[in-house]
Design a protein around this nucleic acid. Sequence first.
DNA 1: AAACGGCGCAACCGCAAATCT
DNA 2: TAGATTTGCGGTTGCGCCGTT
Length: 226
Amino acid sequence: MRKPCCDKQDTNKGAWSKEEDQKLIDYIRKHGEGCWRSLPQAAGLLRCGKSCRLRWINYLRPDLKRGNFGEDEEDLIIKLHALLGNRWSLIAGRLPGRTDNEVKNYWNSHLRRKLINMGIDPNNHRLNQNLLRSRNPPNPANATSSGLKIQAKQQPTKPRVDSEQTSDAGSCLEDDQCALPDLNLDLTMSIPSSSIAHVQGNPKDNESNFLRPQKIAPSSNLLLSQ
DNA sequence: AAACGGCGCAACCGCAAATCT
DNA sequence: TAGATTTGCGGTTGCGCCGTT
C-alpha cells in the first residue's frame, strides 16, 4: 500500500459522513473557499485539507449538475479529449456543473469503451488499424453517432512507446491525419459564475483564487470558437 | 438465497506547479 | 534566489451496488 498523504494519525479517511459534509458546507458558506490547509481545523474536521478540497469540489459544491451525461456532453468530451488528451480539468471546464473527476470517471467507464466498440482507439482517436484489417472500413457515419468526424484517409499509426501511459490525443493538433476539421472550440478560460455566486468569503481570498494563473496546456491557448 | 463478477463512483496518492518566506 | 509550503491535477484504488449464475 501507498503511504498516506497526511501522516496525521488522527485524521479520518474514507467515506464522508453527513455531519462532516455539513461542517464543510457551513464553513465554506461562511468563509469561502481557499486555505485548504488550515480549513479542517478551523471547520472542526478531522480530515486533511486535500480531502476537504476534493470533497467540496467533486461532491458538495452547490452548482454541480450530477446525473447522467447528455449526448451533447458526450460529444464535447470526446472532441475535447481528441484535442487536449487527458487534461480532465480543462475538459471539465467546458462542461458547466461537471468536475474533472466526474469527466474522468465517465470517460474511463463509458466513453473509452464506446470508442473501442466503434473501432476507434481512445488514446489517439484514430481508427483502430487491427479493426481496419479485419473488417471493412467502418462507415464514418457509424463512427460518429457522437458527431466525431474521422477522416477517411488514415496514416499508418506511429509506433507507440510502451512507457507512453497518457493519451497522446493532444498531439493530434500537430497531426494533420487526426485533425478534426469541424472542431472549433473556444478554450479561453473563464471564471465560473458559480464561484462568484457561492463564495461569499474574504474577498482577498477570492481574489487570490480568481487571479491565480491557470495551468493551461500549451495547445489550449488556441483561440477557437464553437 | 448465496456466490461471483463487472461496473460506477468517491476518495486517496504522488507529483509538479505555484506561491510564500 | 533558494528552500519550504500549499494547491491542483491526473492516475489509481477500494468499496458498494446490481445483474447473472
